[in-house]
């Protein structure tokens, strides 16, 4: 009986000792279902983030070309249009990004 109690105390002490250092996190890892869910979710988030970044960088290239074309037209009409209207029309030309369910 005494040996059993000592064994239990040893396990608990070992557990508490291992949990004290802040790194690496989850060294005393329990409840593996939740660990799997956390890790898998983070991995999926990373994959999706990369996809979003790639989409955005592709659109950036298109946007810059569009802007240069618009600026060229702007110079030609510098003396014939109102500045306020020109700026507003430029701003309205930027479509708002809508969430895509297919992304």
């Amino acid at each position: 009986m005494l040996l059993w109690v000592l064994f239990v105390i040893l396990i608990l002490t070992s557990g508490s000792h291992c949990s004290l250092p802040p790194s690496p996190p989850f060294r005393m890892q329990r409840h593996v279902d939740a660990i799997f869910t956390t890790n898998y979710r983070k991995l999926l988030s990373q994959l999706y983030a990369r996809k979003v970044i790639q989409d955005i960088m592709n659109k950036q290239g298109e946007r810059i070309q569009e802007q240069r074309a618009r600026l060229s037209r702007q110079e030609d009409s510098m003396w014939t249009e109102d500045k306020q209207m020109t700026l507003e029309s430029i701003l309205q030309g930027f479509p708002r990004m809508k969430p895509s369910a297919d992304a």
């Binding site: 070992s14 005393m28 660990i35």
Partner: peptide
Amino acid sequence: VFAAFPIGISSTYQI
């Protein structure tokens, strides 16, 4: 098994 050997065992094997 993994409660007794917390050090050096990666979560991969536990999973």
